[in-house]
Write a protein that binds this DNA or RNA. Structure first.
Length: 270
DNA sequence: GGTAATGTTAGACT
DNA sequence: TAGTCTAACATTAC
């Protein structure tokens, strides 16, 4: 679930539920997911503190903590999320995979969910000391068309889907949104960047911005449940009826490209 | 039981 | 050198 739009909504969820409450206990069922610091030290640093502010960078959340310079840095991996609930209530559904839990002084708790244990947690003064954060490309919703073209220019020989997926080019796009973006831009995921026309590049820029913005808007429920994309999204047909949103007679194709399952319309996407 | 899954990365390969 | 491919991580759901 967690690509840019999802993590953006996790940010709002965290801001709404996790800030300015004193941490009274911390539990972690899988301490190996907390990187570069022992869980006992992690706990010591955070006990009795409050989360002050939260921001998003790519697929990461970076959280300020009152009274200490360290930031809590969260990556959700492939199957992560957040859940806020009353303390010690039954953990149903994905809450069964609550790997890290912050208990607050109001008898509620914030759970970091991570089914496949591919997520990571850091506690660092400087977020840039996390290799991937340091190398992260610009935020797609904050760059001009001109800057976008410049990024493409530096990767002429690369496959377009590989380009979109590589966090060092642009931050926050993952497998499903790369498919959605390429569908909107009517570009076949096999294409190499240097073969794209100016109009296709413009469509790619607009498709990126529109898909991400609309996805952020569409998800009124936070967490990983109840995605409700309209049927004109490629996403709503993925792994289901596999019908092209533009034409029911077109069958979507699934193929491994850039190491991931790409789903696209071989007729609409040239 | 086999397969695929919204991420990242190291190392092999062309 | 640059770009691509594969496997690995770990676990569940269908």
């Amino acid at each position: 679930m967690p690509e840019l739009p999802d993590v953006e909504n996790f940010k709002v969820y965290f801001r709404r539920n996790g800030l300015n409450k004193k941490i009274t206990a911390i539990e972690c069922s899988t301490p190996s997911l907390i990187k570069e610091v022992r869980f006992s030290d992690f706990k010591k640093k955070l006990m009795e503190k409050k989360f002050k502010d939260v921001r998003r960078r790519g697929k990461f959340l970076i959280i300020d903590i009152a009274r200490i310079p360290e930031k809590l840095i969260i990556h959700f991996g492939m199957t992560g999320g957040l859940s806020y609930a009353e303390q010690d209530t039954e953990r149903k559904g994905r809450d069964r995979f609550s790997r890290l839990i912050f208990k607050f002084d109001n008898n509620e708790e914030l759970r970091w969910l991570n089914v496949r244990k591919l997520g990571k947690i850091y506690l660092k003064k400087d977020p840039e000391s996390v290799e991937l954060i340091k190398e992260l490309g610009p935020e797609p919703l904050q760059i001009s068309e001109r800057q976008f073209f410049e990024l493409l220019r530096k990767c002429q020989n690369k496959n377009i889907k590989a380009f979109l997926l590589d966090q060092r080019n642009i931050a926050g796009i993952g497998n499903i949104y790369s498919d959605e973006i390429l569908f909107r831009a009517k570009i076949n995921p096999h294409r190499i960047i240097e073969t794209l026309s100016k109009i296709e590049k413009q469509n790619l820029y607009q498709g990126t911005i529109n898909a991400l913005r609309e996805a952020i808007e569409i998800r009124p429920s936070y967490g990983m449940y109840g995605i409700r994309f309209e049927t004109d999204w490629l996403l709503s047909h993925r792994h289901k009826d596999m019908e092209c949103p533009r034409n029911k007679n077109h069958k979507l194709k699934r193929e491994i490209i850039a190491g991931r399952a790409a789903i696209y319309c071989p007729i609409c996407q040239k």
